[in-house]
Design a protein around this nucleic acid. Structure first.
Lengths: 207, 207
DNA sequence: CCCGGTATTGGACCGAAGGACAGGTAACAG
DNA sequence: CTGTTACCTGTCCTTCGGTCCAATACCGGG
């Protein structure tokens, strides 16, 4: 398995050499020429055209292209998904220690995906929500409430004021407050803000 | 690295034994007892409570739990994301060949994710839409604001009170209100509720 | 029949939120 | 120099949100 880094010679980090002593450093066009299933390519992010390169490297022609991993100096979940979506099998910080790079190489060479636990959580979380998984969590929350409380909670979570909810349900604003109080206790939130955040997606930051 | 299959003895497939001759077959409660970082657990999907089991196995107490892989007789992308979201590191067809299972074990043991190319494409696709699509809209909103307004807006959208935002940014609560007022005008929302809904996802119901 | 949960409402109280009005500085374009 | 814009602060004032302490009524299980 040949290792090649796609970047300028000057941008090559010593730790990469450390991880793969036999690695070569090539430019984009040359990388495309030698892309094959026997090659592991490491693309260092610069500019915004890297997804194109990754895509080309990963699916050379009809069959299996190179095994592509993306290295970023400022990793984030959006970039990670973008990389995976383009066909990369690995995504990590460009300054990751050599041992980690070796591990990535091992994993990706065996049809695995390597992304790093915290980023993976976000990537998967995104997919989970996108595929309707969040509905289940939402239901799980809501079924701990009574009918009325549920109705109030949903209405509030849609951005309605207490008064508006009262009109909607044909009850007093006072009663809305009572139900809402119960909802707060049961779902363990402080106020309607936290409720909205809890019911929409799970990423509230406790102050 | 110990291999354990979580299923009834009768449900154990010969090919699993082939892949891991030393594997044990245990029930759920026993699996939970012996879950640790040195254990690789294979959960065979049956019923609809498996995500709970996976979650418990994967994050045993505070630290690292077992390495969990999920085997399904009817794999699909929703189930795959659900598995990953629950903390599983692998997801494959229950009738996968022994070599593939070994490969999965290798990959997952090294912090990798193994899902299978075609399913991975769908999972990532979902994440891409979820993270990419919404982010763009969100950015579009925010770049109509000044630096300070943006900072206030996101802080509020995370559920912070005016006072908390003031502390966070090192300014007066009054100033927070001023910026927030500007944000409301520019984004055409009535209050912080609508702001949260507008910035988190696009589904506010105008009353 | 009593107890507990649900649904409803009342009043009072206090803090948070948001608007109105009025200032201040600093930077920058015309 | 003047007008504009971002940024920061202040004082009122009103409304909204949330909690505490009540009360009444229904309904089902022990």
């Amino acid at each position: 398995m040949k290792q090649i880094f796609v970047c300028r010679e000057s941008a090559l980090m010593p730790r990469w050499r450390e991880a793969f002593p036999d690695a070569r450093c090539v430019d984009e066009s040359f990388a495309l020429e030698m892309a094959s299933a026997e090659v592991q390519a490491w693309v260092v992010i610069q500019g915004d055209t890297w997804p194109v390169l990754v895509r080309q490297l990963a699916q050379q022609g009809a069959q299996q292209g190179a095994i592509v991993s993306v290295l970023s100096y400022a990793p984030d979940s959006r970039e990670a998904t973008q990389a995976l979506e383009a066909g990369a099998r690995g995504y990590a910080h460009a300054l990751s220690p050599p041992e980690l790079l070796s591990q990535m190489a091992l994993v990706t060479a065996h049809q695995g995906i390597w992304v790093g636990p915290e980023l993976m959580a976000q990537v998967v979380g995104g997919a989970y929500r996108a595929l309707g998984g969040e509905e289940r969590l939402r239901e799980e929350m809501l079924d701990r409430l009574t009918q009325r409380e549920r109705a109030v909670a949903v209405a509030v979570a849609e951005g309605n004021s207490n008064k508006a909810v009262a009109r909607l349900l044909g009850i007093t604003e006072r009663t809305v407050k009572a139900h809402l109080g119960a909802v707060f206790r049961k779902l363990e939130v402080r106020d309607r803000m936290q409720l909205v955040l809890k019911l929409s997606h799970q990423e509230q930051s406790v102050t």
